[in-house]
């Protein structure tokens, strides 16, 4: 999955909440598309993508325009989006299984969906490799980026679109509520394994791949829903990282070693 590298950037931008908001934001989009166009995959994707982007961009604009705090605007929006999504789906009375939407069913993923996911992952990784420099600069010093004419806002929007795309790709397998887990948890865990942005991205991808495989096995053998199983394993990986990770981990801090000479 290409989600975790995005998660690293979200974490660095202090936008961890944004992914969550997007995941909830895509729900009413998917539901509305379903009401209008029925079960057509392109329509569902378009609906979800537009709704996710609208929520994320809207929250940023809202907090800037009203001088409020962004986290408050985000929280407000995602609660409304979630409620709206569930209400819209209920209108058609269980034609779409709500639990599957929210929590996913990996084993129900068919070939076209799989291709879409692989396509999204490929596109995301290519885009990240391509736009690496502007993204890092935008994260580190947005004012400088604007002063040298780096078009920060444009990169930011493209980045948000990538996040929305990845949330969408993941929702069939993991569900909207759980998709973000696989994006953010490995990223947060990766912080404890690497000091540079590049290292964090590799570590996050590795953690995510391992967790997906282990989570799926667990889900199959213990008959758990796949989304929560994978996210639980990722949570375990995070806990292990916090405890034993070489960068700012708890255990290396507890072990007293003599301080360096200089």
């Amino acid at each position: 999955m290409a989600g975790p590298p995005l998660g690293v950037f979200l974490m660095l931008r202090r936008m961890s909440l944004t992914a969550d908001v997007m995941a909830h934001g895509v729900l009413p989009g998917i539901a509305a598309a379903f009401l209008v166009a029925g079960l057509s995959v392109p329509a569902l994707w378009l609906g979800g993508l537009l709704a996710g982007l609208a929520v994320a961009v809207g929250a940023g604009a809202l907090s800037r325009a009203t001088g409020g705090r962004e986290d408050a605007a985000l929280t407000g929006l995602y609660l409304v989006a979630l409620a709206l999504g569930v209400a819209l789906i209920s209108v058609r009375g269980g034609a779409m299984d709500l639990t599957h939407l929210l929590f996913g069913s990996v084993l129900g993923v068919d070939d076209p969906a799989l291709l879409l996911m692989a396509g999204t992952a490929t596109l995301t990784l290519l885009a990240l490799a391509f736009a690496w420099r502007p993204l890092v600069l935008e994260c580190f010093d947005p004012d400088f980026a604007r002063a040298v004419g780096a078009r920060g806002a444009l990169w930011h929007l493209a980045f948000l679109a990538l996040v929305a795309l990845n949330v969408l790709a993941a929702f069939q397998a993991l569900g909207t509520l759980m998709a973000v887990g696989l994006m953010m948890l490995p990223a947060v865990a990766a912080r404890h394994w690497a000091r540079g942005v590049g290292g964090m991205v590799y570590a996050a991808a590795g953690v995510a791949a391992t967790c997906s495989a282990l989570g799926l096995l667990l889900s199959y053998h213990l008959d758990l829903p796949s989304g929560p199983a994978i996210v639980l394993v990722a949570g375990l990986a995070w806990a292990v990282s916090v405890l034993f990770g070489p960068v700012d981990g708890l255990l290396p801090r507890l072990v007293r070693r003599p301080h360096l000479a200089g």
């Binding site: 660095l12 890092v136 600069l137 994260c139 580190f140 004012d143 400088f144 040298v148 780096a150 942005v197």
Partner: peptide, 29 residues
Amino acid sequence: RIGLLPQQAALDRRFPIACLDVVMFGLWP
């Protein structure tokens, strides 16, 4: 072209980036 030194408090000094990489952003133009 304008070179701007922002107020230091405006930057996240815990950002995981190497010194040389920060300096190299000066090559952006």
